[in-house]
Design a protein around this nucleic acid. Structure first.
Lengths: 250, 250
DNA sequence: CGGGACATTGACGGCACTCAAGGGGAGTGG
DNA sequence: CCACTCCCCTTGAGTGCCGTCAATGTCCCG
């Protein structure tokens, strides 16, 4: 089930990928599975807080998250940071670097993270031999774009309270779909992360989150944010959630 | 050169597409060109101000802009609008609707716009028979994502003045690359558009743009925004164009 | 000539920023 | 076991950026 590689790291064979069973992801045909399992060249395990990909780097790899939380971000020269999106199991990381030559953003782990490593050089084969997977890639990119659209709408046009509620409800539902949250698992972010996502200062973020706490919608713990009332959050955010549909991943 | 279709609309054959000659776009092989020209089923001409695609619609079509300016946007229920990005010749429109079933944003023309119309149903052939074009699609989607990342950074972390300067410099350079701007062509936006892009009120947008006018960086005309000093704008925005940035290495 | 779209400007209030100080928990070292 | 440090959350005070309201001017068009 978990064969040891020469370096002693145990890897998960794609045939037994735990994500594949989730209803969130579409089923793969046998040839697709074969290809992906040859496409995968190893696994990468990083600890919480480490930088997985760096803005400006030229990575030869492409990753899919297997376990854990991470986030994408950009920074201005004076240090101002903007978190762009959060990355969870099944999400692709590093496509920009692969397709466009150079990473335009960084990726950092929010928890211990395991990634499947793919060889950039074999990406051509994916397009030539597996059109269904190529379509999936486009699907994934379009879907990522949709999330950014929503985030942009949020930062640009929602109030601070709406923004905060929207972000947490979004993270909650996305994490739930990939079993990252079961029962009372907190979302492993600090208020600094929330602030850098919402485009607010940390002080004002604290005061805004406090309102959500006072309304019994969330609770803040030393491990992160606990969601108590997701419907209440969505209501504050003025958000009717999209229908849950199956999506592909690679 | 411009054969008349039965409906009387003259169309541009892909073999003589004026965009193809721009250095901004890569050359197509003959088979690619043949496919695209069969993929294209017609042209759509809309006037300034009309809505090309509507949020929530299920369009059977996919478009590429041939002439003109447009923009993508989303609205909240109470009418607050966020402009997500601007669309210019060579840009793909409607991929989300095609790939994900339903449009999650709207698209509106800023000027008279001509679009090439593609049949959604033939998209499969693109993936199965033309891997290089499939790769291009992914490239385009990744590139769009990169622009959204930058826009998000801007709205979230730049000051109002920086934001405005960045937006105008961005539009200017993008338009220049596809010959939409030659000499003294204005960017055909109102201050309301700028406000809805930057996430500011129209009053404050006006006062911010005034500062750029007072510094002789732009001029505002009844047709839109004239760029007088693009380098000056980039400087205010704190924007080193991508090529000049320092990058880390190991 | 009236009406609509857009730019402009002033007044005023509030949301969000910076500065500053303090508390609690976890980890480290004496 | 207790200081000490670091990180994170919390709260108050004061300032200012930016939002709303309101009024005016210009241009275009019916």
């Amino acid at each position: 089930m978990s064969p040891k590689k020469p370096n002693g790291i145990s890897t998960t064979p794609c045939q037994h990928c735990p994500l594949r069973d989730l209803p969130h992801f579409r089923d793969f045909s046998s040839p697709e599975l074969d290809f992906v399992s040859r496409f995968k060249t190893g696994e990468l395990a990083v600890e919480s807080g480490s930088v997985i990909l760096m803005e400006g780097s030229h990575s030869a790899h492409l990753y899919t998250v297997l376990h854990g939380w991470a986030f994408r971000y950009k920074t201005l020269e004076d240090g101002r940071r903007q978190i762009l999106n959060y990355v969870m199991p099944g999400d692709l990381v590093g496509l920009q670097g692969t397709v466009m030559g150079e990473m335009q953003h960084s990726v950092e782990a929010l928890s211990p993270v395991t990634l499947c490593v793919f060889e950039r050089s074999r990406l051509n084969n994916l397009f030539t031999d597996h059109p269904t997977l190529a379509y999936d890639l486009t699907w994934i990119a379009a879907s990522e774009e949709r999330m950014l659209d929503n985030h942009l709408l949020s930062i640009g046009r929602r109030t601070a309270l709406e923004r905060a509620a929207y972000l947490i409800a979004f993270l909650y539902s996305k994490a739930k779909a990939v079993n990252l949250i079961q029962g009372q698992t907190p979302i492993p972010v600090t208020q600094q992360h929330v602030a850098d996502t919402l485009g607010l200062s940390i002080v004002h973020t604290n005061k805004t989150l406090r309102k959500l706490v006072d309304r019994d919608l969330i609770r803040w713990t030393d491990k992160g944010c606990l969601v108590l009332d997701n419907d209440g959050l969505s209501h504050v955010a003025g958000w009717q959630s999209d229908e849950k549909r199956q999506r592909p991943f690679i």
